[in-house]
Design a protein around this nucleic acid. Structure first.
Length: 207
DNA sequence: ATGCCGATGTCCT
DNA sequence: GGACATCGGCATC
């Protein structure tokens, strides 16, 4: 059985710990008549105003990023490169703009609908590999930004699946070369060896 | 297997 | 005008 994560889960201050705990949890959407579900296997933490890779670096605040300053437990979905809808989870309390990017999923339910939405012919590892692909497969668009994660249309649940600490790896984040020294921060977390992982398969630093 | 390129909304200089 | 939390296709090794 699935149990939705509570607001308390998201509103804690340790964004790195929350990111790690999201591995193995189940993301559920209902973009149409059919529920879709995928297990989270890769995430990246964005550590608020102090993090040069974050949209909220230096306290920046725009119409797009406003939702990052909301209390934790809502979705932050933004358009990347004008094309891809990237799904993030907002964490911490009001005015502390922490967020966690969901980068890859293992498809569990609604795979036929995922294929229709993505236009892919086969459910291979690319279906939900990478943040743009994962969001597209799950039917997540910028229309869902600001939506509470206790909504029936979009939530994250615990289903008893356990990820051992020894399976959890950390590495620098992907695609943030502009972030100065923060490029090197090991804020990407993933389940070791999982087939749906994005980025370089080979060299992945230990956590 | 690796690399370049185009698509293109939002934000920044 | 340029950069960007990306991806797939096509060219080349």
């Amino acid at each position: 059985m699935r149990k939705k994560l509570s607001k308390d889960f998201y509103q804690r201050s340790d964004v790195l710990g929350i990111a790690r705990e999201l591995l193995g949890k189940v993301l559920v959407t209902k973009p149409g008549a059919v529920c879709c579900a995928g297990r989270i296997v890769e995430v990246e933490a964005y550590n608020g105003t102090a993090d040069r890779a974050s949209h909220a670096w230096g306290g920046r605040r725009t119409a797009r990023t406003e939702v990052m300053y909301a209390p934790g437990g809502v979705a932050y979905v933004y358009l990347c490169y004008g094309i891809h809808h990237l799904f993030n989870v907002v964490t911490n309390t009001a005015d502390i703009p922490h967020a966690i990017l969901i980068r890859a999923l293992e498809p569990l339910e609604g795979i036929e609908d995922m294929l229709l939405r993505t236009g892919k012919k086969k459910a291979d590892v690319n279906l939900t590999r990478g943040p743009g692909n994962a969001s597209k497969a799950m039917g997540i668009t910028t229309e869902l930004t600001g939506v509470s994660l206790d909504s029936n249309a979009l939530y994250i649940a615990e289903d008893g699946f356990r990820v051992a600490d020894s399976e959890i790896m950390a590495s620098p984040r992907i695609g943030v070369d502009y972030a100065g020294a923060d490029v090197l921060l090991p804020y990407r977390f993933f389940i070791q060896g999982h087939p749906n992982l994005s980025g370089a398969k080979s060299v992945n630093a230990l956590s």
